[in-house]
């Protein structure tokens, strides 16, 4: 038997790695992948708690989160392609047109 604490700790570690990826990397695509990693970490915590409490609602939540992530990826990648067409770069430091 594995304590649920271990799963929550693993989920926290994956979330922190994702957050660090968003802050450290400058490639918009890798920042986006890090966001996916953070969503995945949240899903892992949901499923772990669903299992420990023997309630299925957590798994339904994960199902919805996966659907929303798929929609988010479609729109986000379309935005990145549109930005690349105008700026010829997806380095987030280059996208500073709103800077005064």
């Amino acid at each position: 038997m594995v304590p649920v604490t271990y799963y929550v700790a693993l989920s926290a570690v994956l979330f922190i790695i994702g957050a660090m990826g968003v802050l450290v990397r400058r490639n918009a695509l890798i920042i986006f992948m890090s966001v996916e990693l953070m969503l995945n970490a949240a899903n892992l915590a949901f499923v772990a708690f669903a299992s420990v409490n023997n309630i299925l609602d957590g798994q339904i939540f994960v199902f919805f989160i996966i659907a929303v992530a798929a929609a988010e990826v479609a729109v986000g990648l379309a935005l990145i392609v549109a930005i690349f067409r105008t700026k010829k770069s997806i380095d987030v430091d280059q996208i500073n047109m709103l800077k005064g």
């Binding site: 038997m1 594995v2 304590p3 299992s51 409490n53 023997n54």
Partner: peptide
């Protein structure tokens, strides 16, 4: 210890 309990590995 804000989370406690064991994973039910034989649901």
């Amino acid at each position: 210890k804000s989370a406690s309990g064991l994973i039910n590995n034989a649901p």
